[in-house]
């Protein structure tokens, strides 16, 4: 599976369209909504943060965990501080777009997905790379969980 081989699933497609439909300042507001909507960690992770994988490519602290259940459905968990809303927003987008999907659908997500949100002019390239890194780590964990 090579990054970028697949197409956007309908949920990510919808998110990309939402971002595409609004101008610069509203895109930031939208990103903030994703940041606010990121669900808190369930207790089994909140109390065992060592089970989370750090994503050092993000400019602010970000940790994630991936589960693949018996039905091959992917569940995503993120931990990012409220003081880092941009990174939280990226995590929120990935949660909204991938949580609850089948493992194959997650693995099919193009690696350069973040560049389709029209955020390049608003957010520094470094931060966008952080989002790509989260996706890369999610996919790796999905593959590991299935093996």
């Amino acid at each position: 599976m090579t990054a970028g081989a697949g197409t956007l699933n309908p949920r990510l497609q919808e998110i990309a369209e939402e971002f595409g439909a609004v101008g610069g300042q509203q895109r930031l507001q939208l990103l903030l909504e994703f940041s606010d909507d990121l669900p808190p960690l369930p207790a089994r992770y909140a109390e065992h943060r060592d089970l989370l994988e750090p994503v050092p490519e993000c400019q602010s602290p970000l940790f994630l965990a991936v589960e693949v259940d018996a039905h091959d459905t992917v569940h995503l968990f993120f931990d990012a501080p409220r003081e880092a809303p941009t990174t939280r927003g990226f995590a929120g987008i990935l949660h909204a777009g991938l949580d609850g999907l089948g493992a194959d659908e997650v693995l099919d997500t193009p690696g350069e997905f973040s560049s389709q949100l029209g955020l390049q002019d608003l957010v520094s390239p470094l931060r966008l790379r952080g989002m790509a890194a989260m996706l890369g780590r999610i996919k790796r964990q999905v593959r590991e969980r299935r093996d």
Binding site: L28, L31, L32, S35, Q59, A84, L122, S124
Partner: peptide, 9 residues
């Protein structure tokens, strides 16, 4: 700010 969304929060 470093974080471009912080102002909005």
């Amino acid at each position: 700010d470093e974080d471009v969304l912080l102002y909005e929060t």
